[in-house]
């Protein structure tokens, strides 16, 4: 399909690609530029800011009314805890699905597949009411607590991840565990000392994917969290900029750059896995 072509015949391709590169990069560059622009407004911004300064970034860390740095920290902490717990719990479940034969195994696998059909956020109303009543019994897990939000995320993350991880565990040969068990290891030791180290790539990928997903989650966080110092970045940033583009654009831009940075960096790490994961997903569903 492809042939070597002369420089000029190849030129239109570069022209088209350049148009899309501009489309893809313009908003990013525009925001980066705004973040260094001290005027803090949409009005009269140019791509290369005059008298660039770090004032907007300083504002993020010092503002008391809008503790944006704190929101970023909240998002990161919630993301880390959720991801760690998700990896721990799903790897246990996936190990059982992969290595044991027991009654209800097929049904369990089927259920974890079925649950993916119903994104958790669709049930936001009943989750809100559920957490409300949990909070009446156990205030630490109620509305407007990080623990409650993490608990909700844990529920939503099990289906997909258990399925993915089981697929990976299936590819690890059982002979290693078998010899370990002959030496007297329990199945739990085999899981802990053999499977987990061997499955490190998938654990890392699921951890990072879960982190990115949790970090970017908006609807449940906005329903469950209601006080400023507990906002995640997704909730806080939306309320911060809401119809205030004329007066807060600069600080917002700086917050966007800073808030997107952790995810962009993780994404760069993950790119290789993502590309292969997405296409293998295409075959497996």
């Amino acid at each position: 399909m492809y042939r070597r072509h002369s420089f000029f015949r190849g030129l239109w391709r570069h022209a088209v690609l350049l148009i899309f590169v501009v489309f893809a990069l313009f908003p990013i560059l525009w925001v980066i530029s705004a973040s260094f622009n001290p005027s803090n407004t949409l009005v009269g911004q140019s791509l290369i800011p005059k008298n660039a300064s770090l004032a907007n970034y300083r504002e993020i860390f010092t503002s008391e009314q809008y503790p944006i740095a704190l929101w970023i920290k909240n998002s990161i902490v919630i993301g880390l805890i959720t991801s760690a717990l998700v990896v721990a719990m799903t790897s246990l479940a996936a190990y059982a699905f992969s290595r044991f034969r027991f009654k209800g195994r097929r049904e369990g696998l089927f259920a974890s597949l079925l649950v993916q059909v119903f994104p958790q956020m669709l049930a936001a109303v009943s989750i809100y009411l559920l957490v409300l009543s949990i909070g009446k019994l156990i205030p630490a897990l109620g509305i407007n607590t990080h623990a409650g939000l993490i608990m909700v995320y844990l529920g939503g993350a099990m289906g997909v991840n258990a399925w993915l991880m089981k697929g990976y565990f299936d590819t690890i040969p059982t002979s290693l565990e078998e010899s370990a068990m002959i030496d007297g290891a329990s199945p739990f030791q085999a899981y802990y000392m053999i499977i987990l180290p061997l499955a490190r790539p998938i654990l890392a990928v699921i951890f990072l994917l879960q982190f990115i997903g949790t970090y970017s989650e908006f609807i449940l966080a906005s329903v469950l969290i209601s006080s400023s110092e507990k906002y995640t970045l997704a909730v806080g940033l939306q309320l911060f900029i809401h119809d205030q583009y004329a007066s807060r654009w600069g600080v917002f831009s700086a917050a966007s750059v800073l808030g997107a940075l952790p995810i962009v960096i993780l994404f760069m790490f993950l790119q290789k896995y993502l590309v292969s994961g997405l296409t293998s997903g295409a075959v497996k569903g």
């Binding site: 799903t90 246990l92 369990g108 939503g156 099990m158 258990a162």
Partner: peptide
Amino acid sequence: YLLPAAFFMILLVVY
């Protein structure tokens, strides 16, 4: 091995 995952899934998705 399934208990923790099943617990959260039933409480926060199925229910």
